[in-house]
């Protein structure tokens, strides 16, 4: 974990021409940057490309970063915008659940049931509006406050809060519907 003080020191070094110092920031934030991109483009190689592009854009525009917010908040906003424009260009709208963190069945039936539930959850997620789904996924990464998610999405915090609440209610209803349907097919 990098402190704000360390971060500022690193930024000063990078702006002074020591570009190698940027590696520390890349190492620190690459996982979340990649995860955000993945949530939006739904494809690992593309998410990697998007995250790399975002890091390069951030580096090239570092002089414009005014340090009112944390670097990571600014960076993740760049990742978010890069991923959204990438997705619009590529039109790869299909959703893959290959990256879904479905637990491996090591404890028999209980895990299998959990894996099924997670699969149903991803199925239910398809019924959500894209902005609601993204707000929900970013919120549940447990790495960002509601305000940070709002900054990333360039929306007011209240709007994001409404999106997260609405998405959860919709998911609960949709899961109930899917489970009822599954029960009928057994």
């Amino acid at each position: 974990m990098i402190t704000q003080e360390e971060e500022n020191h690193l930024l000063n070094r990078i702006l002074a021409g020591e570009s190698a110092a940027y590696a520390r920031l890349v190492r620190e934030y690459k996982n979340l940057a990649f995860t955000i991109a993945l949530k939006i483009v739904n494809n690992k190689p593309e998410a990697e490309e998007v995250a790399q592009d975002a890091f390069i854009k951030a580096f090239q525009n570092l002089k414009k970063f005014n340090r009112e917010a944390r670097f990571k908040t600014w960076l993740y906003r760049i990742v978010f915008n890069t991923a959204i424009s990438y997705k619009r260009k590529s039109k790869a709208a299909f959703y893959s659940i290959e990256h879904a963190q479905i637990p491996v069945s090591e404890q028999g039936g209980r895990d299998l049931q959990k894996a099924d539930q997670v699969k149903f959850l991803h199925e239910a997620m398809q019924t959500l509006a894209e902005a609601d789904r993204l707000a929900l996924q970013l919120f549940y990464l447990n790495e960002f406050s509601l305000e940070e998610v709002a900054t990333m999405m360039s929306q007011p915090a209240n709007t994001v809060k409404v999106r997260v609440h609405r998405a959860r209610l919709r998911l609960a209803d949709e899961l109930k519907r899917i489970l009822n349907k599954e029960a009928l097919t057994l």
Binding site: A20, Y22, K30, N31, A51, Q52, V118, Y140, L169, L171
Partner: peptide, 26 residues
Amino acid sequence: LREVHALLIAATKVQTPSLKFEESVM
């Protein structure tokens, strides 16, 4: 709602990019 909450926590994990990610950026 609690079930959805628990499932979302279980399903939303931070992912890691390839090992050469940092090198490619640099």
